[in-house]
Design a protein around this nucleic acid. Structure first.
Lengths: 193, 193
DNA sequence: ATTGAAACCAAGCAAGCGCTAGGTAATTAA
DNA sequence: TTAATTACCTAGCGCTTGCTTGGTTTCAAT
């Protein structure tokens, strides 16, 4: 029963698993697929993780932490509500479509594959991310950039952004920055001066 | 090799399967679960469907047809762009959260569980639905209700609406009609007079 | 009353699944 | 140099999966 926690090898494995879970879904990704992608034999995976779900938890935890880190970094640069809203939109789209997007996508698409216990553990991270977003949205409403119920506005916006994983391909012309700005304009009916 | 096509029994089975696929996902729903929910033995299912995926195809096909039917019915009542936009929003939310919602939800959440062949067949229905929506959005832009790229606007709106299956519970106070109107206001920054 | 088709059941097969047990190699620490 | 720890492999177990086969029941039309 040997379970190291923050080894580099583990992070490698988690990152490879993220790609498979994103491309094939958690249920359809077998431990044998994970093994062959990591260069291990299937049994050896369970030296690093106690079961398959622990791999998913590790992927999602990494994805959420990265998202929180990114939105905080992007919004730290600016203080006006309009720029902060745009930066948040950009940050979110960046974690979904930029480099290392796999984990964040999995954290969105495979949430319901988690056991109740795992959700209990990860929900705090998700709540933290959503609470951060809520403040951005609240301030945007106060600044008359958005209108209506604050809570619903946050849900609408994050929903529309998350849904972009279904259709957006950054290599097809439009950049993430452009997409973010388009989105900002459609939302607020305004431009940035 | 007996495959009837439009029998009532088949529709019953499809409707029960829709509920299971929605609650448990296609992959995690076993044929034995389907059998027990329909009161059949597991082998008997394959008298009605050639394999498990054909059940999913039937569910999604029904869901898409119902959606098309609903948006056309709702928008037929009105002709001003603002009212047509609101009616479309309401119609979409109605198929997602009203009665018989299961099939439409499955058509959204389980799209990637389909084989390529099945997608080829169903994509026409999805395209038809999205094309209908696109016209609504185009007209709303012309009427200055929305602003920016037409195609992206449609994607943003449908994404935000679809995402509501993740959080909206109609029994918790807000009605579908209220939700639709809130959504309309946030989108257009306008009220209906 | 007989027939034919449709609807269902009983039994189980082959394949794939997550995971385990017991060993060996590689790395690190003393 | 030795001892311990970590990393990995070999082999396979027990179980569930989607699905098949060959037979029985139900029932409407003759």
């Amino acid at each position: 029963m040997t379970i190291p926690k923050q080894s580099n090898r583990r992070k490698e494995l988690v990152s490879i698993a993220a790609r498979l879970f994103k491309d094939t879904s958690f249920d359809r990704t077998t431990v044998r697929m994970l093994a062959s992608a990591t260069g291990l034999k299937s049994g050896s995976l369970f030296h690093h993780f106690k079961d398959k779900e622990e791999i998913l938890v590790a992927v999602i935890e990494g994805g959420l932490k990265k998202s929180i880190e990114t939105i905080k970094r992007e919004t730290a640069k600016v203080d006006q509500p309009n720029l902060r809203l745009l930066a948040s939109i950009y940050g979110h789209l960046e974690t979904l479509h930029g480099e290392n997007k796999d984990a964040h996508i999995v954290s969105i698409t495979e949430w319901k594959s988690l056991s109740e216990d795992s959700k209990d553990h990860l929900i705090k991270l998700r709540d933290e991310y959503e609470a951060y977003w809520q403040k951005i949205v609240d301030d945007a409403i106060t600044a008359n950039l958005l209108t209506g119920d604050p809570h619903l506005n946050r849900l609408f916006i994050l929903g529309a952004l998350n849904w972009s994983i279904q259709w957006f391909k950054p290599e097809q012309g439009v950049s993430i920055k452009q997409l973010a700005y388009n989105f900002y304009q459609s939302l607020t009916h305004q431009s940035i001066d």
